[in-house]
Amino acid sequence: MVRKAFTYTLMILSLAAIVYGGFGRKFTVFDNLEKFDQLKNLGIKIKLPGYQQESPQLKVESQAFTEPEVVNATTFDGIGRYKDGRLMSKYPDLRMLKGRRPCPT
């Protein structure tokens, strides 16, 4: 009886964690413009939706990502933190990661 009570309680909690984590939880991730500039200085052209390639000055943009999207990004080691604690994409923009394969960590 006690075991069943634990089982059902844990099942409900884990389902709640999955549902909230999967659909409700959002992470604000900021673009890594330093990396963007480094790439531009190397002559690498970056095509990203939402950015004007010709724009001389790029502003840091933040985007809200769902937890599954962040999980996907972490498989690329794609998210870090700025010194002030904000979440930061280790790539110029996390949208770059769509359809790519992760490198070994």
Binding site: S14, G22, P68, I79
Partner: peptide, 18 residues
């Protein structure tokens, strides 16, 4: 990776627990 960021991956922990 999440631990390094000081976060808990709820979907992953929930999935393992489920």
């Amino acid at each position: 990776q999440f631990t390094q960021l000081g976060l808990v991956p709820l979907t992953v922990v929930g999935g393992i627990a489920l």
